[in-house]
Design a binder for these strands. Structure first.
Lengths: 133, 133
DNA sequence: ATAATTGCAAATTTTTTGCAGGTTC
DNA sequence: GAACCTGCAAAAAATTTGCAATTAT
């Protein structure tokens, strides 16, 4: 639990129990949307309100603690901020895997006349399991 | 206008005036969200309803006529389906540019144990104009 | 002629807001 | 103790639904 407190403080946010719980559920799930966070966190803190989640999702995104992962046709999911990576999204089971971005790939994404700040790469397809079933 | 009718029929959709108008506004804007489509199309067909746009956005996506472009922190935009490409999204002015995906980039995105169906690459940063102002 | 589509109004779902009371540093 | 957070309830925004009338093929 110490890590979440530190993480929040490092990013200029007060460490409330609600925030650490939200981070814990995001960390645990890997990628999770607002409703799912609500369901998770309510188990331990039944008084937590959805409004608090919305407010904090926005704040924590703003302060660089978490990152939005938009999913085609569904609600965005959120993940803890970590080293740059891309997502393999299974169109059958919905699983999202993190995958390192090849250094070669990065090089090829350098474009003239565009000052790149961050990249968002989602690959849609079939995960290993779903290919064989 | 002929093109939109053909485009719809080729994809097993009846060519209604509402649909061709929606496609026209998407085509004209390049990338546009639901509200913006509504504002645009209403100028010519004031009786068009938002519900019709929602219904058709889903259908046309499903039938491969248009594609969703999720934008961090904003409502998704839509574009006509065209050759695979990526998006350069300006964090200052909001402009979205299409950009060809380097063949090299594509190669580097081939991952073991994942059957790739489609890729979604968004690069966030500053466009040429906004760098110099 | 048939099946599909539209527009409306209402329902539902999702997200935001204001504020009194409570908490963190 | 000052500034910030939370939960609630209510408001606002976004999306979906059912159905009678209309339209495309």
């Amino acid at each position: 639990m110490k890590n979440y407190i530190t993480l929040l403080k490092e990013n200029d946010l007060k460490a409330t129990i609600q925030r650490t719980s939200i981070l814990k559920s995001i960390d645990h799930a890997g990628h999770i949307n607002v409703d799912e966070i609500y369901e998770e966190v309510k188990k331990q803190y039944p008084t937590l309100s959805l409004a608090t989640i919305y407010k904090n999702i926005i704040l924590m995104q703003h302060n660089g603690v978490i990152i939005e992962v938009p999913i085609n046709g569904k609600k965005s999911k959120y993940e803890l901020k970590k080293d740059e990576h891309m997502h393999l999204i299974c169109q059958k089971c919905g699983e999202i895997q993190d995958q390192e971005i090849n250094p070669q790939t990065k090089e090829t994404l350098i474009i003239e006349n565009f000052q790149l700040k961050s990249s968002q790469i989602n690959l849609y397809g079939l995960c290993n399991k779903c290919q064989n079933s």
